[in-house]
Amino acid sequence: MNIFDIIGPVMIGPSSSHTAGAVRIGRVANKLMDGQTPASVEIILSGSFAQTYRGHGTDRALLAGIMGYHSYAEEIRDALDIATRRGIRYEFIKKDIPGAHPNTARIHYRLEDGSEGTVQGASIGGGNIRVDLVNGMKVDFSGDSNTLLVMHRDRPGVIASVTNLMRWEYAELNISNFHLSRTERGGDAIMTIEIDTLPPDTLVDDIRKLPNVTNALLIRRL
């Protein structure tokens, strides 16, 4: 904790959990889309998010995050209109996600080229979030650290190739957390790697070139 965790964050109101945290969940989707504007998004609101989203602007906050705005951006208030102007079709669905944290949103996006993806995250208090699912696979990260997501095929040696690359080509990077998840043996898998410092831009490109890696993304500290 530092002084700006108490005098701060600078944010758009009214609620750190239902507004600022919601922007951050949306921002994870924005990073997954590599900053592209989606053609459409479908957002499931669960628990307290479903019950009170209108009064807290949770819907605007999520869309603003999806469009890449920060939790202090005044555009959040007008995010529904901005999304419409950008040609984004959006839909909010109130639906309970069993077992999910009370403040949970699941964002499903489609890009112009037909590719799609999913993020599920929970706002766990004070504007902090926990990302639970990416493209149907379990992950567990907060966005408080720089987080590397490596999508790959479940084959022997892929983890070693990624960590070896980091060890030998980016020796200054220190991994603070590592999580692996896969759909099935030999199927799609995802590594969640939290790193203490911000890695150089070249890291993601280098990881993408490794065999059996389908994609890699860096989610900078939110």
Binding site: G8, P9, V10, I12, G13, P14, S16, G57, E74, I76
Partner: peptide
């Protein structure tokens, strides 16, 4: 009130007590 109308505030320490 600015907080309640989705204006920009500094949480100090929270939005509710800003």
């Amino acid at each position: 009130g600015c907080n309640a109308s989705m204006g920009r505030i500094v949480a100090a320490p929270t939005a509710g007590s800003c």
